[in-house]
């Protein structure tokens, strides 16, 4: 493994049902994540995904690669743009994980997530144990 290696990537379809399921499982029932009337009243273009749903997708990418969630030491994300999820057609997230640094048995992984070519997270990074 070398710095710069792409270690995992994924393309994830996000539909309203996914946000409703996430709301139920997480307990975050903020209506901006499922009710377009409320979302547009507060100035959003449409319903948006929970930021934590996007981070959860990056977490999924990490665990699929690592096999064991216990190897994750820290995991940070800054949400830089909303993931807008229309009723018809939904949205698509493009995810990627890249080796940013290797220090002994600790690996720093840089994560990216884009939707329609827009970066929806910045400074997304995880520190993981090599094994």
């Amino acid at each position: 493994m070398n710095v710069g290696d792409v270690i995992a990537s994924s393309s994830v379809k996000v539909e309203r049902i996914n946000l409703v399921m996430y709301a139920g499982a997480s307990g975050d029932f903020n209506p901006i994540h499922w009710n377009e009337t409320v979302a547009t009243q507060v100035g959003l273009p449409d319903v948006i995904a929970h930021g934590m749903y996007t981070q959860a997708q990056l977490g999924r990418l990490l665990v699929e690669w690592l096999g064991d969630p216990g190897r994750i030491v820290s995991f940070s994300v800054r949400f830089s743009a909303p993931v807008v999820v229309p009723q018809d057609g939904g949205a698509r997230l493009e995810l990627q994980a890249t080796v940013a640094a290797i220090d002994g048995d600790m690996i720093t992984v840089a994560l990216s997530a884009t939707c329609d070519g827009v970066e929806v997270v910045k400074d997304a990074v995880a520190t993981v144990r090599a094994a």
């Binding site: 948006i48 994300v77 800054r78």
Partner: peptide, 17 residues
């Protein structure tokens, strides 16, 4: 105002899962 709130940043530090 809850309706005006969005999530800006999120960090986890784990001792274990």
């Amino acid at each position: 105002n809850y309706a005006l709130v969005v999530h800006g940043e999120q960090t986890f530090e784990y001792q274990r899962p």
